[in-house]
Lab assay of single mutants.
Amino acid sequence: LQAFIKTLTGKTFTVEMEPSDTIENLKAKIQDKEGIPPDQQRLIFAGKQLEDGRTLSDYNIQKESTLHLVL
Rank of each mutant, 00 (worst) to 15 (best):
T66C: 06
K63E: 12
T22F: 06
P38Y: 13
Q41N: 02
K6H: 14
M17P: 01
D52F: 04
L50V: 05
T7M: 15
K29D: 01
D52W: 03
E64V: 07
I61V: 10
G47P: 00
Y59C: 03
H68P: 02
T12N: 06
L43Y: 04
L56S: 01
Q2D: 05
G47H: 05
T12L: 10
G53Y: 10
H68M: 14
L50I: 04
T14W: 11
L50R: 00
P38A: 15
E24Y: 14
S57T: 08
A46Q: 15
K11A: 08
Q40E: 10
K29S: 04
P38D: 03
L71F: 09
D21M: 11
N25C: 10
K63H: 15
Q41P: 01
L26E: 00
S65E: 08
L69T: 01
R54P: 03
Q40V: 10
I30N: 01
I44G: 02
Q31F: 15
R42H: 11
T9S: 13
I61P: 05
E18F: 14
E18G: 10
L71A: 07
L1D: 04
T12D: 05
D58E: 11
E51G: 04
D52N: 12
E24G: 14
T7L: 14
G35N: 06
T12W: 10
P38L: 13
T14S: 10
K33M: 14
E16N: 11
F4L: 11
R54V: 06
D32P: 01
E64I: 07
K6T: 13
L71C: 07
Q2L: 15
K29F: 06
K11C: 08
A46H: 14
L43P: 00
M17G: 03
G10M: 03
I61S: 04
E51V: 07
A3S: 03
F45Y: 13
Q62N: 14
T22I: 04
T7E: 03
I30R: 00
F4V: 14
T55P: 07
K27P: 01
V15S: 00
L50E: 01
R54E: 06
N60Y: 07
T55F: 08
R42I: 15
S65F: 14
K11F: 11
Q49C: 11
D52A: 07
L26N: 00
T66K: 07
